[in-house]
Design a protein around this nucleic acid. Structure first.
Lengths: 254, 254
DNA sequence: TCGTTTATTTTCTTTTTTTTTCGTTTGTTA
DNA sequence: TAACAAACGAAAAAAAAAGAAAATAAACGA
C-alpha cells in the first residue's frame, strides 16, 4: 500500500470511529508503530487530527460536522428509512432543494451516484457532502450563517429563491401539529422555508413520526403548503385522517 | 505490446483499483520499473493520474480537494505575516468581505476576539471557522459550490452583492502582473470578485510576494480597481514603482 | 543496409520511506 | 510513590523507490 494511501485510510478510520490507537493501526497496516506515529504526525501538521498518548482522534471542521450530525442522530433508523423512500422521487436530471436538517442530510448521503443532479441547499454540511460527487452540482443559498445547524438563514437566504423554479423540495420541520401546522424553533428560518416552497413545483415534507403531533415555537402556516409528507410507520391514525382532509398525500417509508 | 497500449492498460487498471504500484505494474507488463515510471510520468503530464512514492493513483474529485488544501499551504509564513498586517485595518464594528483563498483564511483565523464584526464570505471554510466566534456575524454569499476551493462562485454569488455596501474588502489573487493586471485560474470567479470590489468602499488586495509578477488564466482588469496591496518583503523593486504609478498604496508586512 | 529515431534497459547516485535501536517520558497499579 | 510496562522522540541503519544518463534494442525510412 502506498504511503499516502495509508494516511488516507487512517483518516477514514478516524472519521468512522473518532479515534484510533497506534498499536492497532500498526497491526492493521502491517507496519511498525513508528511508521504510524509518523503518519499521525503528518496528519496533525495538516491540522486534521489531534494526537495523544497511545493514539489520535479527529479534529476540526469535519469533526464539527460530525459532532453536529451526531447530536441530531435520534431516530436515525427512521430517518434513513425516510431518506430511502425519498430516493424514489429523485431522478437523473432533476433540480432539487434540500433543506437543512438531519433527515435531509440522510437524503444527501444517499444521492451519491445519481447523475446530472442539481442540488440547492442552505446547509453547509450537505454542500460539503455532495460537493465531491462527480455528477452532482451543488448550489448554496446565501445568508447569515447559523453555526449550531451549519445552515444559512435570514432574508438574504430567502431572496436567493426569487425567480427560481425548482422541481422538488425536500423540506424539514421541527413539528407538525393540528393547530399550529408546521413549526420551527427559529423565526429567521421561516422566511427561507416559505421562499423554498414557492420556488418549488412539488414540496415533500420529510419528518420522522416523532415530530408529528409536536409543535415548536414559530409557525410556517397551514399544512396545505405541502404536497407530500414522507414519514415512517410510527404515525398515529388521527394524523392520517387529518392529512387526508387537507389533501396532502401521505407516504410511509417501510 | 505497444507503448501506448500499455499506457492505456495502466489507466484501465487504475480505474479498476484506484491505485497501483510501480513494482507490480512492471511485473505485470514484464518491463522494467523505469519504463513504468516513464509511463506514469506521461500520464501525470496528461493530468490523468497522480504519482507518489511507490506508485500512482487516479485523479478524482476527492483528492483534488485534498491536494488543493495541501498544495496551497506554501508560503504559509508569509501569509501569516500578511494576515497580521491586515488586522491593523480591521476594527470593531466593521463589516468586511473576506474573499476565498488561503491568505484570507489566515486572516479569518486571526479575527477571533474582535467584537461586533460582520464578515461576508464566499468561502465555506471561513464561515465554519468564524461561525463559532461569539462576537462575529458570518454571512455567506450564495452560488455554485466549487469543492476544490470550498468556495461559492458564479453569477448568483455576484448578485448577492447587489445593493450591498461594505466597509472593507480583502481580496485574494492568483497572479498580479504588469500586463495582465489581476488574474485568476477560473472565469466564474471574475464576476464575483468584480461584484465584491464594487460593493466595497476600500479594497485591500492580499498577495504574498511570490504571486507578484505571475499571471494566471483569466484577467479581472486593471490594477486601478485596488486601493491597497498588502504583501510581504519579498516584493521586487520594479513592482513597487509600478504600483506607485497606478496610485496603489503598497503595504509591506514584516 | 545504413543511419536515425524511438523505446527500453542498465547502471549508478540520490531521495524517500520504513525499520531498528535506544534513551526518555507517560500511565498504571500495587 | 515506587516499579514496571507501554508509548514516545530522536537518530541511525536498512530497504525501497526515484532520478539521471548512458547503453542497448527495436523500428523505420531512405
Amino acid at each position: 500500500m502506498l504511503a499516502n494511501q495509508r494516511k488516507d485510510k487512517i483518516l477514514e478510520l478516524l472519521k468512522e470511529d473518532g479515534s484510533a490507537k497506534v498499536v492497532n493501526l500498526a497491526k492493521l497496516f502491517k507496519v511498525t508503530e513508528v511508521t504510524i506515529r509518523q503518519d499521525l504526525e503528518k496528519l496533525e501538521k495538516e491540522g486534521l487530527v489531534l494526537r495523544e498518548h497511545g493514539g489520535a482522534f479527529l479534529k476540526n471542521m469535519e469533526n464539527q460536522v460530525r459532532t453536529f450530525s451526531l447530536s441530531h442522530q435520534d431516530n436515525l433508523d427512521k430517518k434513513e428509512l425516510i431518506a430511502n423512500k425519498c430516493l424514489e422521487f429523485i431522478n437523473a436530471g432533476d433540480t432539487i432543494i434540500l433543506d437543512s436538517g438531519s433527515t435531509t442530510t440522510e437524503i444527501a448521503k444517499k444521492l451519491k451516484g445519481i447523475k446530472n443532479l442539481t442540488v440547492i441547499t442552505n446547509a453547509l454540511n450537505i454542500a460539503l457532502l455532495l460537493g465531491v460527487e462527480p455528477g452532482i452540482e451543488v448550489i448554496m443559498t446565501g445568508g447569515e450563517f447559523k453555526p449550531p445547524t451549519l445552515s444559512l438563514t435570514g432574508q438574504k437566504a430567502a431572496d436567493f429563491f426569487n425567480g427560481l423554479n425548482v422541481h422538488k423540495l425536500f423540506l424539514a420541520t421541527a413539528g407538525l401539529s393540528l393547530k399550529a401546522g408546521l413549526t420551527y424553533p427559529s423565526i429567521s428560518d421561516l422566511v427561507v422555508k416559505k421562499a423554498m416552497i414557492s420556488a418549488a413545483e412539488t414540496t415533500y415534507l420529510v419528518a420522522d413520526s416523532t415530530k408529528i403531533g409536536k409543535s415548536s415555537f414559530a409557525s410556517l402556516g397551514a399544512l396545505s403548503l405541502i404536497d407530500y409528507i414522507i414519514t415512517d410507520a410510527g404515525i398515529q391514525e388521527k394524523y392520517k385522517t387529518l392529512l387526508n382532509e387537507n389533501e396532502i398525500e401521505l407516504i410511509i417509508a417501510d
